[in-house]
Amino acid sequence: MRDLLLIALYALLGAGAAGLLGAVALRILRSRSIAVSLAVVAAVAVSAMLAGTLAVAWAMFLSSHDLAVVTTVVATAAVVSLATALLLGRQVVLRCRELVRAAGEFGEVGTFTPPTVPAPAELTALSRELDRTGARLAASRERERALETSRRELVAWISHDLRTPLAGLRAMSEALEDNLVADPTRYHRQMRAEVERLNSMVTDLFELSRIHAGTLSLSPTRLSVYDLVGDALAGADALARQHGVHLAGEGVAPLPVEVDGKEMTRVLSNLLVNAIRHTPADGTVAIAAERRAGAVVVSVTDACGGIPEEDLPRVFDTGWRGAPARTPPSGAGLGLAIVRGIVEAHAGQADVHNVPGGCRFELTLPAPV
């Protein structure tokens, strides 16, 4: 037993010395190729075995013949190990270079094409992650382009919609100032209408800025969808009569929701006003509510004739007003963007899809527990 302990001790000392030298070598060569590191690891393994064997042989006073045999065997193993390590290192380096090349192309063209050659699991996982990152970046760039397009359209339309009423107000005020108006009362009514229009536009811009800044303050309370829809229908009744549009709200179930009553009434009013303006005379705008898969879904269906499929993804974008045939005489394309912002602030979702003769806007709100 004592001899075995001594052999183990001498082997440990010899192998430990080789391992320490290998650790120092790896630290010095840590910035070199991975092939060099693999060769060092193989050399350390063989050197540790050789050093331990020599230490034991010296301690056991083996004959020179036996020592030569052991040394030859270990040296042969060292050559094979180093050759294998270098071959493995070269394969890993080639795979790394392929991945570096693909990553370089990713930086230039913006899309990542994973290498087709087989690679170790870690490099394959890195390639998959780069592929997913490329997809996320592409989606982010697409969103950024869409937002930039919406911003440009919004600035253009806001500039036009502000300039028109301001020019009218200026002309009417100059006419009143120069006493060129036969009926000043009519001009005053028109000026008041233009001021109300401008005030509504500024209010929408302020609301949208709060939504985008994340500062929209909500005070949710448990309310009935029936009451919310009733208030919105009452507010839109005059506009519907003016356009000759029939409002239908018989399909509204008295379902409870936890929402900010003021903001959600604004959402429903925006949807109803948008639907009324795009529905021809004698048409119908229907509003309904139902429970679906643990959520409350409120829908507004109009008779606008439908929205082009290519425009459906942009309906809730800031500044979108659609084709000229759908563009209302007033407004800057902010109403539906506000709808989506308020609904998402309630952890809900706003969607739109075409139905026969028109389109349907759906608001999905979480059902209270």
Rank of each mutant, 00 (worst) to 15 (best):
T284A: 05
P254D: 03
E196C: 05
C96D: 06
P356Y: 06
L12F: 14
V73H: 08
V181W: 02
M191D: 02
V80A: 15
I338S: 03
V181I: 14
L162H: 04
V56D: 02
G235Q: 06
A119G: 06
L6D: 07
R132T: 12
V46D: 02
V267D: 00
I276H: 03
A119K: 11
E177H: 12
S150Y: 05
D302W: 02
V40A: 07
W320D: 01
Q91F: 13
R314P: 00
A350C: 11
V117D: 14
V355T: 14
L272I: 07
L334Q: 03
L38E: 12
V109S: 12
Y10A: 08
V79A: 14
N354G: 08
T185N: 03
P120I: 09
R95E: 11
A138G: 04
S224T: 07
R292I: 00
L336W: 07
V229I: 06
A75E: 10
L21D: 00
L166S: 07
T215S: 15
L6A: 12
S31R: 14
I34Q: 12
L88M: 14
P254E: 01
Q190V: 08
P368Y: 02
G251S: 08
S209D: 13
L9F: 15
T279V: 12
T133I: 08
R30F: 05
L130F: 11
K262I: 09
D302V: 04
V273W: 04
R291T: 02
T215C: 02
N179M: 11
R314S: 13
I342V: 15
S269K: 03
R141E: 07
F106P: 01
A35P: 01
L223F: 01
H278N: 15
D351E: 15
G251I: 05
D66Q: 15
R210T: 09
E148G: 04
L176F: 08
